[in-house]
């Protein structure tokens, strides 16, 4: 998984991140870093704060305090131009969120053309290549609403890739899919990881976490309880809480 441990600077570094919804503290002083080219999976029970952490990393949720260092800028600082930084961070959602008023190709070209990253022709070229990579080149003119769930999610990945991001965030990308379709999305993600894309994946797919990721982060009640090498995490977890959580998954 092309991980270069000599690269000293993390691509994104989260420091003392705190976030609460009302009086409920969801993230309690999270510290966490992702190196370039690294694939990190975040696992944990529902409500442990993993999605919130991911959504804080491109500021879809505004943190209460703390820092998120990305390309030398603090995303969490007041009045930072978040739009420009978000161009470098792709995000894939659990519910796909394809633009329902557009077809597949326009879904992919909307942001590059609107943000003047590319001309229309170039953007379409890039979109075609990305759609081909996710196996959907026959659907470029199909309305977004006419696709199946797995197809939608693959388009969503292609759409994010069209912005040529440095970092991809996946928020439970397979949780809304039928079990037999999960594989087609995971394959695309596996290819992406093999190409060296830096990825942070919130998932319940333990096989993916074990086999594809370079680092596994286990979150419990708003803190990172344990993190480390996937082999070590899955074979020899240190905390009883982690063992308990993993045991429940390995039962199935």
């Amino acid at each position: 998984m092309g991980l270069d441990n000599t690269a000293a600077e993390p691509l994104i570094r989260v420091e003392n991140l705190r976030k609460s919804f009302g009086s409920h503290l969801v993230l309690k002083d999270i510290d966490f870093a992702v190196m370039p080219g690294e694939v990190v999976t975040i696992i944990g029970a529902s409500g442990s704060g993993k999605s919130t952490l991911l959504r804080c990393m491109n500021l879809l949720e505004t943190p209460d305090s703390g820092h998120i260092w990305f390309h030398g800028e603090d995303l969490a600082a007041d009045r930072v131009n978040i739009n420009r930084l978000r161009e470098k961070i792709g995000m894939v959602f659990q519910s796909f969120n394809l633009f329902n008023n557009k077809n597949v190709l326009d879904n992919c070209t909307l942001a590059p053309v609107t943000l003047k990253k590319m001309g229309k022709a170039e953007a379409e070229d890039v979109a075609r290549r990305n759609l081909e990579a996710v196996g959907l080149s026959d659907f470029i003119n199909a309305p977004a609403t006419s696709l199946s769930g797995g197809q939608k999610q693959r388009v969503a990945i292609a759409r994010a890739l069209c912005m040529k991001p440095d970092l991809m965030l996946f928020d439970e990308p397979t949780s809304a899919l039928d079990p037999e379709i999960v594989g087609e999305v995971l394959n695309v993600m596996r290819d992406l990881a093999a190409e060296g894309m830096t990825m942070v994946v919130v998932t319940h797919e333990m096989a993916f976490a074990k086999n594809v990721s370079d680092k596994v982060v286990f979150m419990d009640q708003g803190v990172i309880a344990e993190q480390g090498d996937p082999q070590q995490m899955f074979t020899d977890p240190q905390l009883p809480r982690t063992r308990e959580f993993l045991a429940r998954y390995l039962e199935d």
Binding site: L60, R86, E87, M91, S95, N97, A111, L115
Partner: peptide
């Protein structure tokens, strides 16, 4: 309109 539509657009960098 599903708030996810707006989130997806914002996540791509649109204002």
């Amino acid at each position: 309109v599903d708030p996810g539509q707006n989130e997806a657009a914002r996540s791509l960098g649109l204002s």
